[in-house]
């Protein structure tokens, strides 16, 4: 049983974080293309054939004389390269949350997409407020739930009742990571003829 728990633990961790596969695969393809091009250039150089783009010896000379380039273009180029690198480091280090929550279950691991939670809460909010589904907007992020209602013009909304219903429903899911109590906002302008 304990091995199953550790397996479940691993799944919970993996399924709520990004694998960064897309970024890694794109980067690997770019590296493969660059390596292949460099290899071809070196072979062409060995055979004394004309290069595809730049001969290796020309590359080396350019690198040596890099200080003769205008300072502005060196700084600009360096900045672009450094910022790209910084973006890769950020991708490598940040968790990359996947917009999912874990639903309490003893038997299995249940992962729920945030938009499913949002649409379920929206339906409860709409029925509690007595308005249409299209007058409710719910957004669910990792820690927060925001409910925005557009009342029907001339009809007062029971703020506490809606909030209670949404809070109770959310509490019943027992989601991980825990969501803060929902925030409710009611649009000042009502919808006419709804």
């Amino acid at each position: 049983m304990s091995s199953r728990r550790s397996t479940y633990q691993r799944i919970r961790r993996r399924e709520t974080r990004s694998p960064r596969s897309v970024a890694a695969i794109i980067l690997a393809i770019v590296l493969i293309s660059t390596f292949a091009w460099l290899a071809v250039e070196i072979v062409l150089g060995m055979l004394n054939r004309p290069p595809i783009l730049v001969a290796p010896s020309v590359m080396a000379t350019a690198l040596v004389e890099i200080t003769s380039l205008p300072a502005a273009s060196l700084v600009g180029g360096g900045l672009v390269i450094a910022l790209t690198g910084w973006a890769f480091i950020a991708l490598a280090v940040t968790p990359g949350r996947r917009g999912r929550h874990i639903l309490e279950s003893t038997h299995t691991v249940i992962l729920v997409d945030d938009d499913v939670i949002a649409s379920a809460l929206a339906r409860h909010a709409a029925s509690a407020a007595g308005i249409g589904l299209d007058q409710v907007r719910v957004t669910v992020s990792r820690k927060r739930v925001e409910v925005r209602l557009t009342p029907t013009s001339g009809i007062l909304l029971d703020r506490t009742a809606v909030l209670n219903v949404v809070t109770d429903e959310l509490d019943s899911y027992q989601l991980q990571p825990t969501l803060e109590p929902p925030r409710l906002s009611i649009a000042r302008e009502g919808k006419v003829g709804a």
Partner: peptide, 20 residues
């Protein structure tokens, strides 16, 4: 995946900083 991103990122930062 993350190691590849990290290594390439660090290399790029070092090269860019060297150019600057």
């Amino acid at each position: 995946n993350r190691l590849l991103l990290l290594l390439v990122g660090l290399t790029a930062v070092v090269l860019g900083a060297a150019a600057i």
